[in-house]
Each structure stands twice: as C-alpha cells, then as structure tokens.
C-alpha cells in the first residue's frame, strides 16, 4: 500500500502539471495550429468545395493569380481606406475620452461601464442599426446632415461615403473600449511626476502631451497593433451594409468589399477554397507588415526611443 501511494504521489508531482495544461495544448494543436499549417497546403492546391475530385497540386498558381486579380487589388484598396478612416480617429478620440475619464468623477464606475455599451452590443445588431441610420432617403445620418445644411448622401453609391459609413460603425464600437485601456495606463503614472511638472508651471495641455502620452505609449502601441489586426480583418460591417448581405459583394461594384469579405466570397460563394486559402496567407502577411510599420511609426511619433 505504501508503495502505491508513494507512486501516486510521484505521479501527482511529476506528471500532473502536464495533465493540467494538456487540454489547452491538444485543442489548440487541432483547431488552432493545424489549420494554420494546413492552410498553407490548401493554398497550394486546387481545392474546390463543389467538386472534391478536382483536388490536385496547383503549385504557386493561386499566388500568381493573386498578383493580377483586380478584385483582390480593389479589396486591398478598400480595406486600407476603411482602415485609415477608422483607426486614426478611433484612437485619437479614445485618447480624448480617456483624458476626460481620468479626473475625479462623481459616478466614476457608472461612466466607465457606460463606455462599454457599444463594445458589448453584438456587431451584427449594431451594424444592422447603422444600415438603417445610413439609409439614403430617410436615414438619421442624412437627417443630421440636412439640419446643418448638407445635401443628402447616397452612402452606398461610392467608395468614400461607404468607407466613412463603415468607419463610423467601427469607431462607434471601439472608442470606449480603447479609452478604458488608455485610462488604466494613465492611472499608473506616478502622481509626483505631475506635481513636479506643475511646479515648473506646465499647463494641463502640456502635461497631456509631455507626460501622459509618452508614459502610456506602450498601451498606445498595443492598441495600434490590436486595431491593425482587427481593422484589416473587417468582415461583419461590410457584409451587412449591403442591401443583400448574402451576396458578399460589398456594393454593386465592390465599393466597400474588404479582403476578409472577398475571402468568404471566393471560398464559400465561388467554392474555390484553394484560392481563398492563398488570400488568407496574403492577408496575414499584410497584417504582420502593417502591424510592424505602425508600431515603429507610433513609437517615433510618441517620442519613444528606437
């Protein structure tokens, strides 16, 4: 009996840790890692959903096709346009809101929680609301414009206006969330730094740009990376802005079709999974490059070293 309990004890100490982490690694290996690698294989094949028999080696044909694919070029252009229109105002406004929240407030918790209303609202639901808000004839957006004397805009008729509509949805959803991230970093800044700078006569505005922003730079970079990853993968908003969402075409002439949407269309509407996989790889590469560039840029602009 002693031998058995001794052995059990040894097992418990030596092997139990692996048992505890095993579920994560096993499930991740199957449903996370394997698809990533397998995706590379699929991209090199002519994998069709409607006709599995056609499956065969394609070499780099899918990637070559990408280079001259006008739809892909158009989707890339749209994705970047929407990305810029949504990320830059989003993070700047989030900074402003965080600045407002970073005061001694009555009802502080209440204000913070209320900032998360857009974040918690299902993206499909909020996008459907904005679909109505951006209606051409009777939408709220056009009504607001008419109050300030601007002519009604057909939000789905061109690139710029549809991008603005989508960027508005993205900004609405993420400003409060990012503001909380900034706020939490702002509150870790030691108080004496402010006190010392106040003695030197710095105004609140100067303090914001000379102390607050540089001190929260790591979190700013984190949000830049997060919004790059999210912004370049936009799917739900462009899908549901369409009057016929199931078409996945992003407007009658692909005015606002994003890459993620095109991947869905190529893979599950045109049933060409091999080509869709190649596009996924291209998208991944683009995300990595943009994330790195943005990180470096933000670091420079924010006054960080290197």
């Amino acid at each position: 009996m002693r031998g058995l309990s001794h052995r059990l004890h040894r097992f418990d100490v030596k092997h139990m840790p692996y048992v505890l982490i095993a579920p994560f690694f096993i499930l991740f290996a199957i449903f996370g890692l394997f698809p990533l690698i397998f995706n590379g294989v699929v991209a090199l094949r002519t994998w069709r959903l409607d006709d599995p028999a056609q499956d065969g080696w394609a070499g780099l044909a899918n990637f070559e096709r990408l280079l001259t694919d006008e739809d892909f070029g158009n989707a890339l252009y749209n994705t970047f346009g929407i990305f810029v229109l949504s990320t830059v105002p989003q993070l700047l406004l989030a900074l402003c809101v965080a600045f407002l929240l970073n005061r001694r407030l009555r009802g502080q918790t209440w204000f913070r929680v209320s900032m998360l209303l857009p974040y918690i609202t299902p993206l499909t639901a909020s996008t459907l609301v904005f679909l109505v808000v951006f209606g051409r004839d009777t939408g709220v957006a056009n009504w607001v414009l008419s109050v300030v004397g601007v002519d009604a805009i057909d939000w789905r008729a061109g690139k710029l206006q549809s991008w603005v509509a989508i960027a508005t949805m993205v900004n609405w959803k993420w400003i409060g969330y990012n503001a909380l991230l900034y706020l939490s970093a702002m509150q870790t800044i030691p108080r004496d730094i402010y006190e010392a700078s106040a003695l030197d006569g710095a105004t609140a505005w100067k303090q914001l740009w000379r102390i607050t922003v540089p001190m929260i730079l790591p979190v700013v970079i984190f949000t830049v990376v997060l919004s790059t990853i999210g912004g370049l993968q936009l799917f739900t908003e462009p899908m549901l802005l369409d009057s016929n969402p199931a078409s996945a075409s992003g407007g009658s002439n692909g005015e606002w079709q994003t890459i993620a949407q095109l991947i869905y269309k190529v893979g599950w509407k045109n049933l060409n999974l091999g080509y869709a996989a190649a596009m996924s790889w291209a998208l991944f590469l683009i995300i990595v490059v943009v994330a790195v560039v943005n990180t470096v840029l933000t670091n420079r602009l924010g006054g960080g070293k290197r």
Partner: peptide, 30 residues
Amino acid sequence: GRAPQDTPAGKWTYLLLGLTFLLSIYPIYW
C-alpha cells in the same frame, strides 16, 4: 499641483462625457 486623476472634474468634463454617453447609447435606443 494635483495629478489629473485627483483633480475634480469640471462642468465641461461632465458635459462632454454626457455627450459621449448619448452617442454610445443612441444607436441601441434607436
């Protein structure tokens, strides 16, 4: 001498935060 988080919020802060709140909730209300 106060750090921002110790400075009591003024009228404008409440006004702008209130506006932010209205913009956040309006689509849901609509």
